[in-house]
Write a protein that binds this DNA or RNA. Structure first.
Lengths: 231, 231
DNA sequence: ACTTTTTATTGAGCTTTACTCAATATCTAT
DNA sequence: ATAGATATTGAGTAAAGCTCAATAAAAAGT
């Protein structure tokens, strides 16, 4: 006896436009990658999430890696936009650094699973496919270059500050904090951590003040007061 | 016509002690993991490198992941030992920090391929197997805790220094620098980078030097204003 | 309204690779 | 020399990424 009801016949998925199907697959892919990580994620699961068969996914994306790459690209575009538009509202080197750190920490906290996938697979990946991802990362972290350059030009920062060093320090530290968060399953305190990290780095790179009474605390206070008065 | 010479019959590998074979497999595994990365590395290649058949590898190690885990363990044991023995020779907070940073940078530069594998697979890994790896990492980075605590006790460092923050900053920054090195295929200048990073962080965490113009009145005002602004 | 063209969808199958296991060869102890 | 222990093997399994010819449905053309 053959039971047709348990071995249910698939209902063919309604035909969709290239764009719509493509987006649905991307959304499902992000979900599954976040849940299982890149290596453990199955294309079959992504297809099932969308309600199509495995082959359909490969009709739209040439490979699993290309799929994760597209997920990353979308994510980077969003957060890069967020940083660029928010940065304009913050005057002063310290405020801008704080904004960058706080925003990046927030992104890491709220998208820890995806960030973990991104960082792992952009590094483990084939050299070719990972290149554009690294470009996206460069675009995302680029604002810090101008912030530091401006700070140096104003005499607010030491002239010998190494920009790559500052970038490594800020983004590396935040990334490290994210791994700890993922391991311990405890959320990062974004505001407090952002302020502490920014303070540490800012103290590390600011030009020594001739006027000794103009201490860090006072300088930061002045900045805070100014930013309030500006609103 | 069947050509027996091209399809050469395997010569059975001479029987070895558990210990000797185990070590040989570990060494070959490290090579292949470094060359290809964890995901792309094939157990068959590791076996071929040793001169045995694939099944032999699984006689000694239950899985590919267990194999990479053992490679990591060996590596961590070596570098942890190196740090612990060298640290005793350096007096003073700054010197010890500089030694830690320089040593870690050197390790990263000289073992970039393996470090990349370790960092990726300890994070992507199954939760269970990655736990002992994280413990090894904690052991390796632990010396910094005592260094900072001593520095604070001596009054050399600010009392409010967050130890996790300093650890994240130092190790995160170095790790970030390593990724850049791997991407750009350019070697890190260990001495120069170590000094710059240590300087930045040390300036960020050292206690402010007593300075008379920073009077108690100003300090109290700063505190009052800050607390008002925080609400 | 009917035919043709295009293309979204399918499911069966191919390939690769981690992993298993019963059989066999080789070493050691008695 | 015999027996037991175990190192080694090669064939085979399963899972998952990926291919492709066939099919169905929408769009375009007449």
């Amino acid at each position: 006896m053959l039971n047709m009801n348990t071995t249910q016949t698939r209902k063919r998925a309604p035909r969709q436009s290239r764009e719509a199907r493509s987006q649905a697959i991307l959304a499902a892919a992000r979900q599954v990658f976040e849940r299982d990580g890149y290596a453990a994620a199955k294309v079959a699961d992504i297809a099932a999430e969308v309600g199509v068969v495995e082959g359909t996914v490969f009709h739209y994306f040439p490979s699993k890696r290309a799929l994760v790459t597209r997920v990353m690209e979308e994510f980077y575009q969003n957060i890069t936009q967020e940083v660029l538009s928010g940065l304009a509202e913050h005057p002063g080197t310290y405020e801008q650094l704080l904004f960058l750190v706080r925003t990046h920490l927030g992104v890491m906290r709220d998208n820890a699973a995806l960030c973990s996938v991104i960082l792992n697979s952009s590094r483990d990946a084939d050299r070719e496919l990972s290149k554009d991802i690294r470009q996206l990362n460069r675009d995302y972290t680029h604002p810090i270059v101008d912030i530091i350059k401006q700070g140096i030009a104003r005499g607010e920062l030491r002239a010998d500050v190494s920009i790559p060093l500052v970038r490594n320090t800020l983004y590396g530290s935040i990334e490290h904090a994210m791994w700890v968060q993922l391991a311990d399953e405890t959320a990062i305190d974004v505001d407090s951590t952002a302020r502490q990290l920014t303070d540490l780095v800012y103290r590390g790179i600011r030009a020594p003040t001739r006027d000794t009474s103009h201490s860090t605390e006072v300088a930061q206070l002045v900045n805070r007061l100014n930013s309030i008065l500006d609103n």
